[in-house]
Simulated assay, not measured.
Amino acid sequence: MSIILKIKKTDDAKDLPLPAYMSEGAAGMDLYANVKEEVILQPGEIKLIPTGIQIELPPNFEAQIRPRSGLALNYGITLLNTPGTIDSDYRGEIKLIVINLGKEAVKIARGQRIAQMVINQIVRPTIVETEILSETKRDEGGFGHTGI
């Protein structure tokens, strides 16, 4: 199934590439940092990093914003509110809540690949209140119920 994802660059991001898949099997497309000048992210610091894009998704789709594994492993850089959800009716600029969980300051440069965006179809079920749920073998077994 092919869907159309419309992307509009903000006026200050015309020089940045569009989000792109970096391999044939990639689930997420990389997003770029739309910072005017280099941003230094100190250990434990949280900053809002703009991407310079706005999107239009079809109804019943969402965009999930996720960290890049290489930045997480090598520098301790991740995103709060992960995965972040971009709803199909949102038209503002996508911005990232970035945190440095590493031990060293990290530089974020203009055009750096900083996160990834995955497009998913959403199912909105009919909600029915009930007093009884079907039983399962697991039933109410929760946190750690299968062992360590």
Rank of each mutant, 00 (worst) to 15 (best):
S134N: 14
I94K: 11
K137H: 12
L73R: 12
Y32W: 11
P59H: 10
Y90M: 05
V98H: 04
Q112C: 01
L31P: 12
D89C: 06
M29E: 08
N74K: 15
L133E: 06
I86W: 00
I40F: 04
M29L: 10
D87C: 00
A109N: 14
E93G: 06
Y75K: 13
A27Q: 12
I119P: 03
G70Y: 11
I94G: 09
I65D: 02
N100I: 06
P83W: 05
Q121Y: 05
I127R: 15
F61W: 11
A105I: 04
R124G: 11
E131Y: 04
P125C: 12
G76Y: 08
K103A: 09
P43K: 08
E62L: 12
P43L: 11
P67M: 01
I108K: 01
N74D: 03
I132L: 15
I119D: 08
R110I: 10
P125N: 12
T126M: 10
R113F: 14
R91K: 14
L96A: 03
K47E: 07
I127M: 15
K47T: 06
E62I: 14
R91Q: 01
A63R: 00
E37K: 15
P83S: 05
G102C: 02
Y32L: 09
I114H: 13
V39N: 03
R124C: 14
D87T: 01
T130L: 13
T82D: 11
E129A: 09
I114F: 02
N34D: 07
P59Q: 04
E38P: 05
M29R: 07
A63Q: 04
I46E: 07
D87M: 05
L133K: 07
I55N: 08
L48I: 15
E38C: 03
I55G: 00
A26E: 04
S134R: 15
N60Q: 10
V98A: 07
I132S: 14
T85C: 09
G44N: 04
T130R: 14
S88D: 10
I55A: 07
I65M: 01
E38M: 08
E93V: 05
V118T: 12
V98F: 03
L101A: 12
G111W: 04
N120M: 08
K47C: 06
R110V: 02
T82I: 08
I86H: 01
L73A: 12
A33E: 02
Q121F: 01
A33D: 02
K107V: 08
Y75D: 09
K95P: 03
I40T: 05
E131M: 14
D89A: 07
E131V: 15
I40Q: 02
D30R: 07
P50Y: 00
L96W: 06
K107P: 01
G28D: 07
L31D: 07
T85L: 01
K103I: 06
L79H: 02
G52L: 09
L96G: 00
G44T: 07
I40K: 05
I114K: 00
E56F: 01
G92H: 13
T136F: 08
V118R: 10
I49M: 05
E62Q: 14
P67N: 05
G52T: 03
G44P: 10
I94L: 05
I65F: 09
K36G: 04
